[in-house]
Amino acid sequence: MANAIEVKNLVKRYKELVALDHFNLEIKEGEIFGLLGPNGSGKTTTINCILSLLSYDKGEIKVFGREMHPNSYDIKKDIGVVMQNVAVFDELTVYDNVDYFCGLYIKDKAQRKQYVNEAIEFVGLEDYTKFLPKKLSGGLLRRLNIACGIAHKPKLIFFDEPTVAVDPQSRNKILEGITKLNEDGATIVYTSHYMEEVEQICSRILIMDKGKNVAIGTKEELKKMIKNTETISIEVMGLEEDVLKELKELPHAYDVKYENMTLLIYFSGGKHNLVRVLECLQKRDISFGRVYSELPTLNDVFLEITGKELRD
């Protein structure tokens, strides 16, 4: 599969601050590629550099195999962007907004009309075509924002945190829509600091921090990069030091923490870890409350690699 985007050795500085530090990226056509990182990690800066909105100090950017410039209209016509902030005209109705942005790409009137109707249907705004944006709820407004970005049926679509401040129902609708767009052939670049969303829809994920590429791969590949395979947490009162020592000596356990009446035992590999932990507690006649067995998340990946939480 050919590369939709190629970024080599990209450096972007804001005065003293290095926003992108020799950043590299390759996104294949047909992927849903997730850019994951905490706020300020450089996700949006990366996108803006790729889109030729931002100048950069060093590096090379290619989109569909061609160098990207501000006047690369032949490349731009195949790109759609759904920005973090809603970007629509307050004075225009839902239909007119979609029609305006679609018209910047599609000249043929009949084709444009068809595309506009399809985009409105795609985001489920058929009942709101004559509404002004101010009459729409936050979730519907986000959907309009998406419709404006995708109406011209681009081959490459950037979604920059499209679900910020969106209710769960609209969020699911948006994520389903993105998957559908990908099934229809679009390459998707999805940025978020919500790891669940990225895990849910992305075929490959790049974790960023401080403008650097921290890790890249499928979610399974990323999780294999870390030591942790299972974390067991148990609500329990008054544990003695010798119990903690015994738990740490269980097969495959590599760390034990006991804070705020919650026992955390970290395992690297192994089966039936939970059974062994419970047997240990039962043997000592220790009462316990809720018990959880959690598989590693991308947050664990981020935590183990960078030493800090993904969410601020």
Binding site: L53, Y73, K77, V81, M83, V86, A87, V88, F89, L104
Partner: peptide, 16 residues
């Protein structure tokens, strides 16, 4: 203008 408003940014991205 892309550096002033999100709307400007979206318009700057169009092939025009």
């Amino acid at each position: 203008q892309a550096n002033v408003s999100p709307l400007g940014m979206r318009r700057c991205l169009s092939p025009n």
